[in-house]
Amino acid sequence: MSVSTIPAVAPVTAGDLRRRIWLVQIGFAALTVLACVTAPLIGPTTISLRQVFDSSIPFAENVDAQIFFIARLPRALAGALVGASLAAAGVVLQALLRNPLATPFTLGVSAGASLGAMLVITLGLPLTVVGVPAVPIASFAGALAAVAVVYALATLRRQGLSTNVLLLAGVTLNSLFSAIILFVQYLADFTRSFQAVRWVMGNLDVSSYGPILSALPLMGIAFVVFARLPRALNLLTLGAEGAATRGIDVLRTQRLAFLSASLVTGAAVALGGPIGFIGIIIPHLVRLLVGADHRLVLPASAFLGAAFLVACDVAARTVLSPMELPVGVITAMLGGPFFLWLLIRHR
């Protein structure tokens, strides 16, 4: 399958590339900041940005600032982190698998995470373990288990990493875990299974900085690895052998890409549930805008994914206010048609 992108004008002089990388990063980062500052202003109680940042009023008396920083900003930041993580993981996995249809959930990570969360919720296990919420921990553990199984299978047969096995094992594990999830749900009582279904829809109902801080180190590690990957990902587009003959240590690149993308996906799902479509529409949209060079695509996707998810979450909170929609429903309802448009656009 080819979602054909028009290569944005390639650098014509050497300075062009450097300038473009800076412009793209600053431009998309500005969008993220704009989304994160605007989102907390929107809600049932109207607050003013001027008063939020009015330093003449002490914080304890500044209701607007309290609503902004305590009630709403954590949710926006969680949205930004999850959006950035899923979009960047999508870029990395599409390049690794050389498949534009890959998503962060293709390799079984989300199914593993869902199963973990599902078990805690439906089996009625205590919702906190020594003060730490159990659902995110269980979902992250589930994600790691899925990653371990898929990775072991892909490296079992021969030296090196088979991206074909990776893909097939991931897809199979997705179905297997989904079946187990259905089984667990079938046995669970109504209230718990309702809770579990809600979790699977994806939800950014984060009302404190705690969950963000616990996800941050994992995401940080993954993004440090991501920063080193773009050029190798560019060369992988030529195929493993084309990349190897141009000096890439393909196996090392594949390992780093797979593990970092899985780590960041596991952390994102633990924080916001399996929110779909971000990992596929954002990378494609960004390629349409900036071309295929991963030095541009990877950072731009992370920033745009962050801004997009924060915006979707505002929609989720306000469209049927006071009722709150799961943000995963919004991203899928926007993402599905967008992706179909992308498919037919160049035919």
Partner: peptide
């Protein structure tokens, strides 16, 4: 034969030879 996973310009492909 060379099949690209993603679409690059000709110049970008030749510049990939500069990686080493």
């Amino acid at each position: 034969e060379t099949e690209l996973a993603f679409d690059y310009s000709v110049l970008e492909i030749v510049l990939m030879g500069r990686y080493p």
